[in-house]
Design a protein around this nucleic acid. Sequence first.
RNA 1: GCCCCCGUAGCUCAACUGGAUAGAGCAACGGACUUCGGAUCCGUUGGCUGCGCGUUCGAGUCGCGCCGGGGGCGCCA
Length: 572
Amino acid sequence: MGTRFLSQLCGGSVSGLIYQQIAANVAQALSEVLGTAPPVPVVVERNRRAEYGDYSTSVCLRLAREARMAPIDLARRVVERLPEAPFVGRVEVAHPGYINFWLDEGWLAAQVDVILEAGESFGSLTLGQGQRVQVEFVSANPTGPITVGSARNAVLGDALASVLTAAGYQVEREYYVNDAGAQVRKFGESVLARYAQALGEDVPFPEDGYYGQYVVELGERLAAEAGRRYLEMDRPQAIRAVADWAVEQMLERIRKDLADLGVHFDVWRHERDLHREGLLDQALTILRERGYIVEYDDAVWFRHPDLEKDAVLIRSPRVVPEPSERPTYLASDVAYLLDKLVRRGFDRAIYIWGADHHGDVPRVRAAAKALGLDPDRAVFILYQLVTLWRGGEEVRMSKRSGEFVTLRDLLDEVGPDPIRFMLVSRTAESPIDFDLDLAVEQSERNPVYYVQYAHARIASILRYAQEQGWRIDEPADLSLLRHPSELALIRKMLELPEVVEQAATKLSPHFLPYYAQELATAFHAFYRDCRVVSADPAEADLTRARLRLVRAAKAVLARVLGLLGVRAPERM
RNA sequence: GCCCCCGUAGCUCAACUGGAUAGAGCAACGGACUUCGGAUCCGUUGGCUGCGCGUUCGAGUCGCGCCGGGGGCGCCA
C-alpha cells in the first residue's frame, strides 16, 4: 500500500491523504521491526503544536509492551526502516516514544500548483466510492412558515450533503412533506374559519387550531380568490380542499425561504404519495408476514423485541376521523423507510432530526430490522434545539400559538451568510442560544465576515496586480516560497481534504467553519509578512510565485465557503 | 420514575477512533503598520475541563456514582 501511494506521489500530485500515506509507511516499517503486521491500526495525527512537526504517531507507545521494548527504542527502530517519501522532510523520535514528521518544504511549495490544477475539486475525496446517500432534512410541517429551529436543520443537512458529495458520495437532498396527518386537517379547519370570518361569517375558531397571523392572511386571500365557494360545500370536503390549497401556499413560501437561505432540494416527497403508491400497504404486509403486527382495541400495532414498550400504534380509526383508517406517524415512517432503502435503493438514508424526536429512533431502527433491512443503513443525526433570546429574555416559540420567529424574519434582519455560518459552527449535540440582538448589532464582527474578508482581500490583490501589469496566470518558480508564513498558509490549505474527510466520516459539518477561520488567519498572517506585488524588478519571480500562492488560497477559501453555502465575495 | 443530550476562560463554543504544555472568537486592556483592503495584525489578562471514584504508560475524551441545565416517554408530528 505504501509503495502504491509513493509511486502516485512521484507523479507529483496528492492522490491520497497525507496522514494515511505516512501511516502506511509506519505500518510497513513496524511490520519489519515486529516481524508481523501491527496488531492495532497505526494512527497518525496532525499536531497541535508546530514544535512537534506536522504529523505524529504514538503507536510505539501503544505497542511497546507487546513488542517487549521501550517505546523510544521501538520508535527509533521504526524510523530506521521507514520508507523514503518525497513529502516528508524530517522525522524525529521524541520522548517518550512519539514519531514526529515534518513535511518537506520544497514539496509543500510545489503543492500550490497541485491545488491550482485541482481547482474546484481540491478537497474532494473518493471516500464514498459513489455510494448513494439520501439526506432527508427540514421536513417541517407545511402548516406554517419555517422557524429558526428548522433553519438549523436546513443548514446542517445542506452542509452535510455538500460535504458528503465532496467526499465522493452520490447525494440526494430530500424534503418530506407531512401532508396527510391530523395537523394538516387542523390547519385546514383554521384557514377555513379565517376564510369564513373574512367573508363576514360569525364562525367559531377551532380551539386547538393555528392562531398565527399568517392564517388570518391566508383566509383573507382565499376569500378574495375563491369567493364563497367553500362555504357552500359540505364541511369535510371544504376542509380537505382548503387544507390542500393552504398547504400549497405554505410550501411555496417554505421553498422560497429556504432558497433564500441557499438551500435547495432534489426531491419533495409527499406523505400522501407514499400512501397512494401503496408503500404503506406493502410495509404492513411485510411486517404482518414476519409477525410484527398485532391487532387489538380496534387498532393495528407494531411490536418488536427491541422496543421496551409493548407495541406502537400504527393505524387506528381514532387518529383522524376522516378518512377512517388514517395511519399514525410511525406507520408513514415505516412506509418511507421502505421507499428509501428498498424501492429507491439508497445505500444509506440520513435523517436530520431535532433532539425532541430522539425517542422515535429506536422505533424506526426496529422497523428496519422488522422489514429485514440492516438498521445501520438508516442514520440519525439529532441536533439540539435552538433557543432564541431577545432583550435578555427567551423567546418562546410555538407554531400553533403563532408565536415564533421565522427564518424570514431572520433573513431580513441578518442575511443568509451569518445565519448559515453561525448555525453550522456548533456540533449538533450542542444546544444553541441564538441572541437576536447580538446577531444583528454585532454582525460585522461575525466570524463569517472575517473569512469572507480574506477572500475579498485576495480578489483585491489580484485586481491590483493586474492594474500593475502582471499576468496572474503565469507559471512561476514556486521554490521561492520559503517564508514561514507562506509555508504555514500552504500547510493550512493542504488540511482541507482531511477536514472534509473528518466532517464526512463523523457526519459533522461543524469542522468546516473552524477550518475556514484558521485558513483566513493563515492568509492574513501571510499578508502581514509578505508583500505580494512588488515594484522591485529583482523580485519579479517572487511576485509571480506569490500570485500563484494567493490564487490557490482564494480557491481554497472559495471551496470551503461553497461547502458551507456561504458566498465568497470579490469585494465587500 | 425511566431514557437521550449537554456541563471546558467573564460570554459563545472547539479539541481528530484516549496522546505531548486544553485551543479559537467575542469582551477587557495595551500596542502596530499607514505603497497590494484597518472588516487586518501583534501582545497581555483569563482554566482544580461541574464534583468524586475507577480503567490506562497516558483521561476534557472511556466506565460507575452524584450535582446542575435542556429534551423525550403509545392514538401530535
